[in-house]
């Protein structure tokens, strides 16, 4: 009797549980899983939206592997990731440490570092286009004032990616805030104990702060990599992939193929390449995290 009642209660709970998560399941199927599968199907087709689809098998993948622009675009995307991720992860850590000191007006400083990350990216692009402008830009105005040679920033293949990486650093305020919250949650007692043992500031940083912060560093590294691999807007607005395709990010190439040249199948194949890269990198990071990320067990 009691058992049956418990069984009915469980059924009831399952029913209500699914009732509440149903929109999430529908959203997952309709807006994520379904599109992913459709995109995989599409990547085996040749289609310009107007004429009927034509099955081409793995031809799109073979073509994109032979396309120089694919490799160029992969190089650009990786180069940008390799530049911007360490920059963001390390510089923001140092800024968070500065923000963690007890000085006056700390909340004003915190706001200053955070604000660039909340303004519309299109506006950010407009401002930085003008800052980098070769003739009337801020940076070249300063360089001229010091009688230094003018730089091309966005208009030269060798400087365009580093210039875009600097913008990414400027907009990375939420990384600073996450670090700051982590720093504030490191137990005081650990530092006090270390100081009793005669450990200096640097020792404390290496042996307490950094190990305790590894879960947060890990989170920020994962987010920074995922974001930088998806970079689109900056390149679309500021450089259109140029000069000479030296800022042709993978996302921009996907967009161009899909919405400019109407090569839907080819674009879908490219987007699967991006998805696989993001997947492999994230999996690798999670696998490596066991070696270097230190998780405090709740028990002690």
């Amino acid at each position: 009797m009691k058992k049956r009642k418990a069984g009915r209660l469980e059924l009831e709970r399952t029913k209500w549980g699914y009732f509440f998560i149903a929109p999430g399941i529908i959203g997952f199927l309709v807006f994520s899983l379904g599109p992913m599968l459709y995109s995989l199907f599409l990547s085996t087709m040749e289609w310009d939206i107007i004429n009927p689809m034509k099955f081409v098998g793995i031809e799109n993948y073979l073509n994109l592997l032979q396309d120089d622009l694919t490799w160029k675009s992969l190089r650009v995307t990786f180069w940008y990731t390799i530049l911007s991720v360490p920059l963001i992860v390390i510089v923001d850590f140092l800024i968070a440490m500065l923000l963690n000191t007890k000085v006056k007006g700390i909340s004003v400083f915190r706001t200053i570092f955070y604000i660039p990350s909340i303004i519309p990216l299109v506006a950010t692009c407009a401002v930085w286009m003008f800052i980098y402008n070769p003739t009337y830009g801020l940076l070249n105005g300063v360089l001229r004032a010091f009688h230094l040679p003018v730089m091309q920033f966005l208009d030269r293949p060798s400087t365009v990616v580093p210039s875009l990486a600097m913008i990414a650093l400027w907009c990375s305020g939420n990384t600073v805030i996450i670090y700051l919250a982590g720093l504030q949650s490191v137990s005081r007692q650990l530092y006090e104990a270390a100081q009793m043992d005669g450990a200096g500031k640097l020792k404390c940083l290496i042996h307490i702060t950094i190990p305790m912060m590894t879960p947060i560093i890990f989170y920020n590294v994962v987010m920074a990599i995922i974001n930088s691999l998806q970079t689109f807007t900056q390149a679309y607005i500021m450089t259109e992939g140029g000069p000479a395709n030296s800022s042709m990010f993978l996302s921009l190439m996907i967009y161009n193929n899909a919405f400019r040249y109407r090569r839907m199948g080819y674009a879908a194949a490219l987007s699967w390449i991006l998805f696989v890269i993001v997947g492999i990198l994230t999996a690798a990071l999670f696998a490596s995290s066991r070696k270097w990320v230190f998780y405090e067990t709740k028990g002690d």
């Binding site: 995109s39 996302s251 879908a268 987007s271 991006l274 998805f275």
Partner: peptide
């Protein structure tokens, strides 16, 4: 990545 979902 949104670029992957955007086409389908």
């Amino acid at each position: 990545p949104y670029t992957v979902l955007m086409i389908p």
